[in-house]
Design a binder for these strands. Sequence first.
DNA 1: CGCGTTTACGTCGTTCGTAACGATA
DNA 2: TATCGTTACGAACGACGTAAACGCG
Lengths: 332, 332
Amino acid sequence: MTLTQLRYLIAIADSGLNITAAAERVHATQPGLSKQLKQLEDELGFQLFSRRGKSLQAITPAGQQVLERARVIVTEAGNIRALAAELRGEEAGELVIATTHTQARFVLPPAIGALKRRYPDVNVHLQPHGDALVLDMFERGRADLAIVSTSGEPPAGGLAVPLFHWRRAVLVPRDHALARAARWPSLAELARYPLLSYESVLRPESSLRRAFAAAGEAPRFAFTSRDADLIKTYVRAGLGVGILAEMAVLAEDAEDLHLLDAADLLPPCTSWLVLRRDRVPRGYVLALAELIAPQLDRRDLRRALAGEEPARWPAPPSWRELAARARSVRAA
Amino acid sequence: MTLTQLRYLIAIADSGLNITAAAERVHATQPGLSKQLKQLEDELGFQLFSRRGKSLQAITPAGQQVLERARVIVTEAGNIRALAAELRGEEAGELVIATTHTQARFVLPPAIGALKRRYPDVNVHLQPHGDALVLDMFERGRADLAIVSTSGEPPAGGLAVPLFHWRRAVLVPRDHALARAARWPSLAELARYPLLSYESVLRPESSLRRAFAAAGEAPRFAFTSRDADLIKTYVRAGLGVGILAEMAVLAEDAEDLHLLDAADLLPPCTSWLVLRRDRVPRGYVLALAELIAPQLDRRDLRRALAGEEPARWPAPPSWRELAARARSVRAA
DNA sequence: CGCGTTTACGTCGTTCGTAACGATA
DNA sequence: TATCGTTACGAACGACGTAAACGCG
């Protein structure tokens, strides 16, 4: 049994039992993986995968057990390497971020920009996905960190650190009836219009859906997307009333869109940074956290990951504060 | 980085930084370890050990971090091998038991005898130690299981399973004043005599010491040992009153010793089996548990180790019941 | 016939043990 | 001088990639 064999095993399992694809992933040749897998199975004395003909069919129950432990081993080996890289002062590496489109498009750009200036040799890989998939990818170990939002409890699956609070924004075309109204609309009034919002409202436990339900309303979501830009585009096209994160509203949107403050209508949300408890983070991972949310300190993050602390986090600022602070920095 | 290098690293750390001794332990040559250590340090880019001249002086802080992760890796690799051995139906292996002298001498023999009949190819290594050292050895990973006693909470450091309850026995020579008394002595009466007991009573938190203290007595422990046989020998020699575990009292002791029932005087104790949560146990480890305490079932133990259960254990019998049951089995 | 896996083979790198050397107390 | 670690060297092994063969849809 070697670390290489276990790495190959994981790659095969994570590539849908396709050895050729797995070989690609680990930068090796397919016969190499085939052989190593065979050797591992010979050493252990049982099949890790069931086969149909020559193709791998499924992981055997025993193989599943081995796979789980192999993941621990390979993760810890990676931790040792990360530890060493940090100690050497290495500033190159990969940073895989699993997050939603809104964060990737409207929140992260300045932070990632600053990060790349500080760590030019870090390659950043953004994986925008739907809410559910983000945490899924993260839990499968495909990402170093996840950035997700909830309107309540912190997300499970790792160490969750609050980055900032935000509110929803309601967007309508400038000539929309709601834009001319004298006062902010109620939920009931909003619910009369076709709504445009994120894909995640399709889930029954969506906080937006629940807010309407609590007011006895059952709005029609006429258009959903993961992509806030698309939602804005279709609001412009007159499809209805857009409900999206305030971060997605830019100054230039005011030219043809009217922003209704939904602060009191809809529950506030928190954006969370989620780190894997089983991984030693590289310095630039924590640097990114600090860059997004200045109230965070990487030493606290390291302590929390080591499990040494009850993990009390500084109160997160609102997005409005963060944006104002960023503007004043740019002005200076 | 290879599994071998990490195994060598652990061996060196566990051999007091003596590479020659470590080489012995892993059945390799000393230059082999030296070289692998050097290669690992070269790959990681920093020293795992600080050196004075050529000798290893201490583990560096970074080395400590690496060492901890290396232990996880090597443990999990061992788990995979154990898993495979079980699946193959392998019935050979090593069984290292950390326990006290009393358990090793008076409780385990029948169980280990039966185990060896069932698993002739399992080599059993008994490590009798003082109470504190037992758990220490166990936590350092030198033993597959520990068997210890407490008179209250289960021991920490692993998955603790209650085996049986037992009481203390008070032994005096047949011609001792207490042997002729009409009734059982009180703690105050006992405390008038020099006492002979286990080494563990020297610790201030000892349950025996606390029992006397609660009665306002401060007895003199004139003789202590880890070895119940020795205590009995010195009781015979007239040094005083022996207080030991009832398991240590044999039928033939009645010839020249008088047994006082201390059931109501001194608090009861529980013997616990302790398993490491990070290790997949071989079948014979669980078989031993079943052989000592028939109320246990290895499937429950496996489930509890997998963390799937709130770990409620069947009520442990008393040692008296266990011994009676064993006698009736022998008679049949 | 394409896709994916296995088998065969040659090369290269690595590990390991023996033996000699060096440093330290 | 004894103990312990390093260096040197040769043999054996193992990993890896290329190329070809095999099975299957």
